[in-house]
């Protein structure tokens, strides 16, 4: 905690990683500031050192990797996710979910994908679609570069704010043609945050579910990957009302400890997990049917 924090703006990723490793504690990585500044302004957080990674060219850009993934630099802002032609064409689920993020244009213009993920905030809108897409993330820590599934990162609270590691890239396999997708965000009110969110991907074969990915957010401390439960219920079936109801029940049952906060009380959140799952899947199926 410091009234007079210090500040560094390293020029290269290597410099940044070295600096962070050298700071015993109290170093906080900052870029767009959308996640950190509210807490700093409210006096909840008072870092000793800011390490501004906003100048690192290595963290910018949306590219195709040699192995055919979409590589999204950690400094990519929501606005770019919404408008970038590659993301729109190859990862429409992500492009759409980025439009549903709260805070309005102002925040979409500055909030980065890296900041959003590192926040590990259960109410945010970028992690559920990426998890549904089985994205991977790339880290630099000291001299090490680590690549791991997003799921692993999200399960590990040491990767949150204040971590020594720098999230550099998100890697996603492009969505296959004909894949149905949907992002369903249920808001209790006109604010920024959802009370339950669901990202769904569906492959259909002759009108029946052939494969499904389903992630539910904003209902518990961590995202819930309901893909297995969904697959067990749905693969080989038509997604009709009965299947939807069964899915809703199964997803709600996965919510062991629902959040209870300004977005709504626990029992309702638990029930809503099922509702958004059902709706997301229905929309994804409809889209797959059209495509």
């Amino acid at each position: 905690m410091s009234l007079y924090p210090s500040f560094a703006r390293p020029r290269t990723l290597a410099d940044a990683a070295t600096l962070l490793a050298s700071l015993a504690s109290g170093g906080v990585v900052i870029a767009g500031g959308q996640e950190l500044m509210p807490s700093i302004n409210q006096g909840v957080l008072a870092p000793e050192v800011y390490v501004d990674i906003g100048g690192l060219a290595e963290l910018r850009g949306i590219t195709e990797t040699p192995e055919g993934r979409v590589g999204i630099g950690a400094l990519t802002v929501h606005r770019e996710l919404q408008t970038d032609p590659r993301v729109r064409a190859q990862l429409p689920l992500l492009a759409h979910a980025a439009t549903r993020a709260g805070g309005g244009r102002q925040v979409h213009n500055r909030g980065t994908i890296g900041g959003n993920l590192v926040a590990q905030h259960p109410l945010y809108d970028i992690a559920p679609p990426l998890l549904a897409l089985e994205a991977e993330v790339e880290w630099v820590k000291g001299r090490e570069t680590v690549r791991q599934p997003l799921a692993a990162m999200l399960a590990d609270s040491r990767h949150g704010l204040g971590s020594e590691a720098i999230l550099t890239r998100v890697l996603v396999v492009p969505m296959a043609d004909g894949l149905g997708w949907a992002y369903e965000k249920l808001k209790a009110s006109g604010g920024a945050y959802g009370s339950a969110n669901a990202a769904a991907l569906v492959k259909l074969k002759e009108g029946r579910v052939a494969a499904v990915r389903l992630v539910v957010g904003a209902v518990a401390d961590r995202l819930i990957d309901a893909s297995e439960a969904a697959a067990a219920l749905l693969v080989g079936r038509r997604f009709d009302a009965e299947a939807g109801a069964a899915l809703a029940g199964a997803v709600s049952a996965l919510v062991a400890a629902p959040l209870s906060d300004a977005q709504g009380p626990g029992p309702w959140r638990q029930a809503m997990a099922g509702v958004v799952a059902q709706r997301a899947l229905a929309a994804a199926v409809a889209r797959a049917g059209r495509g």
């Binding site: 959308q34 500044m37 800011y50 100048g55 805070g103 102002q106 925040v107």
Partner: peptide
């Protein structure tokens, strides 16, 4: 050229 909320933009990050 893009709109932003100045309360949550840290001044020092804008060299």
């Amino acid at each position: 050229g893009r709109i932003a909320k100045s309360c949550i933009a840290q001044a020092a990050t804008l060299p």
